[in-house]
C-alpha cells in the first residue's frame, strides 16, 4: 500500500522535530519520492548514519510500502 507524502513528512517530523522537509512525488504512484531534509540532528553524522536515521523514522516502511526515497540530508 503506497504512502502519502504527508505521512512520510509526519513520521520524519516525529523523529526529527526541527527538520525542514521538502518532498517530491517522482512518479505520482505514492511509491517513488525524493526528499531533502535539513536537521541539526544530522550534525557530525556520516551520510550513511543520516540516512539510517531517516529510515528508522519511517519505521520499516522504507523498502516495503515505500519503494524508493531519494534522500538528500544536510545538517544546516
Amino acid at each position: 500500500m503506497p504512502m502519502a507524502a504527508n505521512d512520510i513528512e509526519t513520521m520524519i517530523k516525529d523523529a526529527l522535530p526541527d527538520a525542514q522537509i521538502e518532498i517530491k512525488d517522482l512518479a505520482g504512484d505514492g511509491d517513488h519520492y525524493s526528499a531533502t531534509i535539513v536537521s541539526s540532528a544530522f550534525a557530525g553524522k556520516s551520510k550513511v548514519q543520516q540516512h539510517q536515521m531517516v529510515y528508522a523514522a519511517l519505521k520499516g516502511n522504507m523498502g516495503g510500502a515505500l519503494h524508493a526515497l531519494a534522500l538528500t540530508t544536510r545538517s544546516e
Binding site: V48, H51, Q52, Y55, G60, M62, G63, G64, A68
Partner: peptide, 8 residues
C-alpha cells in the same frame, strides 16, 4: 538489508 541495517 539485515547485515548493513539498510533497507534497500
Amino acid at each position: 538489508k539485515d547485515y548493513s541495517n539498510w533497507p534497500t
